[in-house]
Design a protein around this nucleic acid. Structure first.
Lengths: 219, 219
DNA sequence: CCTATCCGATAGTAGAACTATCTGATACTG
DNA sequence: CAGTATCAGATAGTTCTACTATCGGATAGG
């Protein structure tokens, strides 16, 4: 099986670049930024790279391009995968990496109360970054003049619960720690992107159903 | 009622700045970038601003800070609100503004097939940006080695449908075009942020349920 | 009248994410 | 084994974005 090749595959920078489609200069940049481990040295100015490097580059690009992470956030995430931390901590790091931190002072207690009501029965710690993010959206919404968004929020909470259950089930399906860590990270980061894409498609679907179109309808 | 004040309120730049909490230089920058209309001129180098400007600044900051839009994307969005375009077009502009464009060449037909299967029965046009975005996540996922994500995707599609129905119901609740246009934009942009926050909270909840915690459990 | 403030234009800044060049050293080629 | 191509690593430069600061002349208010 092809697996046999995996340990012996070894290329120099130029081939790693052509296989990954990422320019040499960019790969070197990722190495400097500690996103990518160094190659295996064979001399003072020679090194070899293998499938592990290629996989890592693909992960980095997925986090940055598809997930929209900054290079700094991507570094935190790959470091969390590499560390032998308990999965719980890896999860938390992934969560923090996708949402820039929110100063708790800047959200009103009213918004927090509303969000907490939404999450009645949920086991969520007070400093969960998502809780603050949701409360900030609440403040923003009411500040813009959309007052009675309670129903909208409640239904989003139901959708979020569905997604979170899917996430955890997917996690349960893996056995090794490395596989779990990777799916935690990839699922956390790409889940947002996936949902926003599917939601846009669903919006078009629902609005076309709702405002059923005799040609030239106006939504 | 306080409404009586709204038409007569008029301030100069410094007060607009202090009321909004946005620095004068930044407000001028938004004016240059056509995010914010000019003030009402009272002389060659004097102008007055009112509640409309304050509301607009709040909208801009919500789009940029909470929704994570670039200044260029925020400009497209406010221009769409101001234009008297049909709501359908405003919706499309808002959708495009939140997701950077994806080159259709870069997603595999296999991914598109899988995504279309997920959306069987949905009325979605081929160039819906969300459809492409979801397909790209599919490619990324399989490329990273998480092969059997079909179940995860399917459940996200169900969640997305729930959210989209909530979106459209909220839209139905408004009557004036201006109110509809604003909720379309704000809902499209902030909906992603809201969902990702709630999902993170829900993840903590579900994982704490699932790996029910005798102290020092490991997720 | 005189100082503070205003408007608009122009220029400058800081950070992020690359990208290009340079310096020796190594590796393949004929 | 000479000569050219390539390599690794260090350093410096570029482009873009989102502001931020300064300037010049005009107005406002005590």
């Amino acid at each position: 099986m092809a697996m046999i090749e995996r340990d012996t595959a070894a290329w120099k920078m130029a081939e790693l670049s052509s296989r990954s489609g990422v320019p040499v200069a960019t790969i070197k940049f990722y190495q400097r930024e500690n996103l990518l481990p160094p190659g295996e040295r064979t001399g003072p100015n020679q090194a070899l790279y293998g499938d592990a490097h290629l996989d890592r580059i693909r992960l980095i690009r997925a986090l940055i391009e598809v997930g929209g992470l900054s290079v700094a956030a991507a570094r935190q995430v790959v470091e969390a995968i590499d560390s032998e931390r308990p999965l719980q901590e890896t999860f938390e790091i992934a969560q923090h990496s996708v949402s820039e931190p929110i100063d708790p002072e800047t959200v009103t207690t009213d918004a927090l109360t509303h969000v907490d009501t939404l999450m009645t029965g949920w086991h969520v710690s007070a400093d969960n970054p998502g809780r603050l993010a949701a409360a900030r959206v609440f403040d923003t919404f009411t500040g813009i003049g959309q007052v009675d968004a309670a129903g909208w929020f409640r239904r989003y909470a139901a959708a979020a619960l569905l997604a979170a259950e899917a996430d955890i089930d997917e996690l349960d399906a893996r056995v090794e720690r490395a596989a779990k860590a990777e799916i935690v990270v990839v699922g956390t980061v790409l889940g947002d992107t996936l949902f926003s894409g599917l939601r846009r498609a669903a919006q078009e679907h629902v609005s076309s159903l709702r405002y059923a179109a005799p040609p030239e309808s106006e939504l």
